[in-house]
C-alpha cells in the first residue's frame, strides 16, 4: 500500500477525523463542543461516501444532516444552561459490550475484502425514488416539515 496515494491519504485523514470526533462526542465535558464534533463526524462520513462512489449522497448528507440536523442540535443545546449531569463512573459493562461488539463486527466484515465495484447512477436513483419509493419520499418530506414546525414552536416558547 502506497502511503502517498491520494485515496489512501483521504481515507486515513477522514477516518482519523471521524474516530477522534466520535471519542470527543462521548468524552468531552461540554455538550456544545460534543455537538460541534458531531458535525465534524458528519463531514468525515460525507468524504467517505464520496470515496465509495456516492457523491450525491455525500452532498445530501452535508446539506441535510450536517447543515440542518446537527446545526439544530447545536443551537438548541446553546439554549440549555445546565449544571453538568453527574455521570456515573465508567461502567465496565459498557466498555466490555462495546469492545465485544467491535470485535464481532470486524470478524463478520472480514469477508468483504474487495474493492468497491460500482458507483451511483443519478438517473437510476431518481427513477427509483420517484417510481418505487414515492410514498416513503412523501413521508420523509412531511417529517422534515414537522421538524420545521417544532423548531418554530420552540423558538416562540409557546409550550
Amino acid at each position: 500500500m502506497n502511503l502517498f496515494d491520494p485515496a489512501f491519504l483521504s481515507f486515513s485523514l477522514s477516518s482519523l477525523l471521524m474516530l477522534i470526533s466520535a471519542i470527543l462526542i462521548v468524552w468531552h465535558r461540554s455538550i456544545v463542543y460534543s455537538a460541534f464534533f458531531l458535525s465534524m463526524l458528519g463531514v468525515g462520513n460525507a468524504v467517505l461516501f464520496a470515496m465509495l462512489g456516492f457523491p450525491i449522497i455525500a452532498l445530501f448528507h452535508l446539506a441535510v444532516y450536517v447543515g440542518a440536523a446537527v446545526t439544530f442540535i447545536l443551537f438548541s443545546v446553546v439554549m440549555l444552561r445546565e449544571a453538568p449531569t453527574v455521570e456515573v463512573p465508567t461502567k465496565l459493562l459498557a466498555i466490555l459490550s462495546s469492545v465485544l461488539l467491535a470485535v464481532i463486527m470486524i470478524n463478520i466484515f472480514s469477508v468483504f475484502n474487495v474493492q468497491p465495484a460500482y458507483t451511483l447512477n443519478y438517473r437510476d436513483l431518481t427513477s427509483l425514488l420517484v417510481d418505487k419509493y414515492w410514498f416513503a419520499l412523501i413521508v420523509a418530506a412531511l417529517a422534515l416539515v414537522t421538524t420545521l414546525i417544532e423548531a418554530i414552536t420552540l423558538a416562540r416558547k409557546e409550550v
Binding site: 485515496a7 489512501f8 481515507f11 477516518s15 471521524m18 474516530l19 466520535a22 471519542i23 462526542i25 462521548v26 463526524l41 467517505l48 470515496m51 465509495l52 461502567k91 459493562l93 459498557a94 466498555i95 459490550s97 462495546s98 469492545v99 461488539l101 467491535a102 463486527m105 470486524i106 466484515f109 472480514s110 468483504f112 475484502n113 474487495v114 474493492q115 468497491p116
Partner: peptide, 22 residues
Amino acid sequence: MEVFYYLVVSAVLFALGVYGLL
C-alpha cells in the same frame, strides 16, 4: 481502498456509540 477498511471504521464508530449510549 477495500470495503473492509470502511467497515472496520464503521464497526469502531458503532462500538463508541454503544458505549456512549450505555
